[in-house]
Deep mutational scan, measured.
Amino acid sequence: MTYKLILNGKTLKGETTTEAVDAATAEKVFKQYANDNGVDGEWTYDDATKTFTVTE
């Protein structure tokens, strides 16, 4: 399945996607991606759209 991440960081905004077997796996990938890019904030997940959002 394809999962999407929306980044609403103070210095980085954008979107990315990943292929993962489940939401938990996608979340690990996205949290590492956000961490690597210096984005740390509040996370939400919408199962209907398979979209994670992180907002600083």
Rank of each mutant, 00 (worst) to 15 (best):
M1G: 11
M1L: 13
M1D: 14
M1C: 11
T2P: 06
T2K: 11
T2R: 14
T2F: 09
T2A: 07
Y3Q: 01
Y3W: 07
Y3S: 00
Y3E: 00
Y3V: 01
Y3L: 01
K4R: 13
K4F: 13
K4D: 02
K4T: 15
K4H: 13
L5R: 00
L5H: 00
L5Y: 02
L5T: 01
I6G: 02
I6L: 07
I6Q: 05
I6E: 04
I6T: 04
L7Y: 13
L7T: 05
L7I: 14
L7H: 03
L7F: 11
L7R: 02
L7M: 12
L7D: 01
N8D: 10
G9H: 08
G9L: 13
G9I: 08
G9E: 02
G9F: 14
G9V: 08
G9T: 15
G9W: 06
K10R: 11
K10W: 11
K10Q: 11
K10E: 08
K10L: 14
K10F: 12
T11G: 10
T11M: 11
T11A: 11
T11N: 15
T11P: 04
L12P: 03
L12F: 15
L12Y: 15
L12A: 08
L12W: 14
K13M: 09
K13D: 05
K13S: 10
K13V: 11
K13P: 05
K13W: 12
G14F: 12
G14R: 13
G14S: 12
E15A: 09
E15H: 10
E15W: 15
E15T: 11
T16M: 14
T16H: 15
T16N: 06
T17Q: 11
T17G: 04
T17S: 11
T17W: 13
T17F: 14
T17M: 10
T17A: 07
T17C: 08
T17L: 09
T17Y: 14
T18K: 04
T18M: 10
T18G: 03
T18S: 05
E19M: 14
E19Q: 14
E19P: 05
E19T: 14
E19S: 12
E19N: 11
A20K: 03
A20M: 03
A20L: 03
V21L: 13
V21F: 12
V21K: 12
V21H: 13
V21D: 11
V21I: 14
V21S: 12
D22F: 04
D22T: 05
D22S: 07
D22C: 05
D22I: 03
D22G: 04
A23K: 15
A23W: 14
A23G: 05
A23E: 07
A23L: 10
A24H: 10
A24G: 09
A24M: 13
T25C: 07
T25Y: 08
T25S: 14
T25I: 08
T25V: 08
T25A: 14
T25K: 07
T25R: 06
A26L: 01
A26S: 02
A26E: 00
A26N: 00
A26K: 00
E27P: 00
E27K: 10
E27L: 15
E27T: 04
K28A: 13
K28L: 13
V29Q: 08
V29D: 04
V29L: 10
V29Y: 15
V29W: 13
V29A: 10
V29R: 10
V29K: 08
F30L: 05
F30A: 01
F30D: 00
F30G: 00
K31L: 07
K31M: 07
K31I: 07
K31Y: 06
Q32R: 12
Q32M: 09
Q32T: 08
Y33F: 11
Y33R: 03
Y33V: 05
Y33S: 02
Y33N: 02
Y33M: 05
A34N: 02
A34Y: 03
A34W: 03
A34D: 00
A34G: 03
N35Y: 15
N35K: 15
N35Q: 15
D36S: 11
D36G: 06
N37G: 05
N37A: 15
N37L: 15
N37Q: 15
N37Y: 15
N37V: 15
G38F: 07
G38I: 04
G38V: 03
V39Q: 04
V39I: 15
V39A: 04
V39Y: 07
V39R: 02
D40G: 08
D40I: 14
D40F: 15
D40W: 15
D40Y: 14
G41R: 01
G41Y: 03
G41H: 02
E42R: 09
E42Y: 14
E42S: 10
E42L: 11
W43M: 05
T44E: 10
T44W: 08
T44R: 09
T44C: 08
T44P: 00
T44Q: 10
T44F: 10
Y45L: 02
Y45R: 02
Y45T: 01
Y45M: 02
D46S: 06
D46G: 02
D46N: 11
D46V: 05
D46R: 03
D46K: 04
D47T: 09
D47N: 09
D47C: 07
D47K: 10
D47W: 09
D47G: 09
D47S: 13
A48T: 14
A48K: 12
A48V: 12
A48C: 07
T49D: 04
T49Y: 05
T49L: 07
T49H: 06
K50M: 12
K50I: 03
K50A: 06
T51C: 05
T51S: 05
T51M: 04
F52H: 02
F52E: 00
F52S: 00
F52R: 00
F52G: 00
F52Q: 00
T53C: 07
T53V: 09
T53M: 09
T53Y: 11
T53E: 05
V54E: 01
V54N: 02
T55H: 08
T55P: 01
T55R: 07
T55D: 07
T55G: 05
E56H: 06
E56P: 05
E56V: 08
E56A: 07
E56I: 09
